[in-house]
């Protein structure tokens, strides 16, 4: 049973809930391997996908998860201009809620927006990424992928490489991993690592080779050009030299380091193509697990019926 109504972030989120979601998600993984990939679990439930920011994979993943569970879904994209008025946010969501819906999956450019949303609506709120704050469903699918590969999370050594400051994926992953007993080292240029983050219980390194030596798995974050002010790092060439997960670098490490990436990738910048496509990369497993874990989250939070077929 889930102890929280919403899924807003993994900070302080009970470890048992995460484990329940992952266990349930492995069940749905099987459903996804069947010829007929649909179950009636959320028949009659209505879910709104409220995207205030562009998204390709998260949105498709959620939509697919909803369709596989037979929920009715509505998609709403807000143009960025209407986001700039707080009032319209409140009005929009209250109007949507007035139409009797069960859940809202929201992506929003501003941290805290999902918590804000819970003040205006009674529906279940699932955070699909709020600015530079959290992206809990991404972290859960990452955890699921690690568990699939290693059979456990506890004691795993995970490096998170790249732009930590502008990454909601990093923050949710840190909370989730620490919560489940993994060890985490962050690695990136100091200009992209927020001050005080070590208080979350992580280590910090500026040497990616050391981290690759140490880790069982690394999660390579996208360098988010569109989020950056100028000068946070000098050039993509410099970044690649210091932090890029290059083929040469990977070859120096003879163990089976597992490579993850939340996508979309800048091939040739933070990760080389042949690394991304190598056997050590579980990037496409992450994508499939994304659908399964989002099915599990929706199913558990919306009190879906047991599978009947």
């Amino acid at each position: 049973m889930m102890t929280e109504k919403h899924l807003l972030g993994l900070e302080g989120y009970p470890a048992e809930n995460i484990e329940t979601i992952i266990d349930t998600a492995f069940g749905f993984r099987e459903v996804l391997e069947r010829p007929i990939k649909k179950v009636p679990s959320l028949q009659g439930k209505t879910i709104v996908n409220l995207f205030y920011e562009n998204s390709t994979r998260t949105r498709i993943s959620f939509e697919l998860a909803q369709k596989r569970l037979s929920a009715d879904t509505i998609n709403f994209s807000a143009s960025s201009s209407s986001v700039n008025k707080g009032e319209s946010f409140k009005d929009t969501v209250q109007n949507i809620e007035a139409m009797k819906i069960d859940a809202i999956v929201m992506r929003h450019p501003h941290p805290g927006a999902p918590l804000h949303l819970t003040k205006f609506v009674d529906a279940v709120v699932i955070n699909a990424g709020d600015g530079t704050h959290e992206h809990p469903t991404q972290a859960i699918l990452d955890l699921m992928s690690l568990k699939e590969h290693f059979g456990k999370i506890k004691g795993l050594k995970v490096g998170i490489i790249g732009d930590i400051s502008h990454s909601r994926v990093a923050l949710s992953n840190i909370h989730g991993l620490i919560n489940l007993g993994a060890k985490v080292t962050l690695c990136g240029p100091p200009t992209l690592i927020p001050k005080y983050i070590e208080k979350l219980g992580v280590n910090i390194s500026y040497n990616v080779d050391e981290v690759m030596d140490w880790a069982d798995a690394i999660n390579v974050l996208r360098i988010q050009m569109e989020r950056m002010g100028v000068g946070l790092f000098p050039s993509t060439r410099e970044y690649r030299n210091l932090f890029g997960i290059t083929h040469e670098r990977l070859n120096k490490h003879n163990k089976k380091l597992v490579i993850m990436h939340p996508g979309p990738m800048n091939r040739g910048v933070e990760i080389d193509s042949n690394v991304a496509d190598s056997e050590q990369a579980i990037i496409l497993d992450q994508v499939l697990n994304g659908v399964a874990s989002r099915m599990a989250i929706l199913y558990l939070l919306l009190g879906g019926k047991q599978e009947e077929n």
Binding site: E11, P111, G112, D130, G131, T132, H133, E134, R168, L171, P194, K195, Y196, I197, K199, L200, G229
Partner: peptide
């Protein structure tokens, strides 16, 4: 100060908000 909207601290880091040191 940059785009800081709250004190730069562990709290701003947790909240994903830009800190004002």
């Amino acid at each position: 100060r940059n785009e800081g909207v709250m004190n730069e601290s562990e709290v701003s880091t947790r909240l994903g908000l830009v800190g004002n040191p």
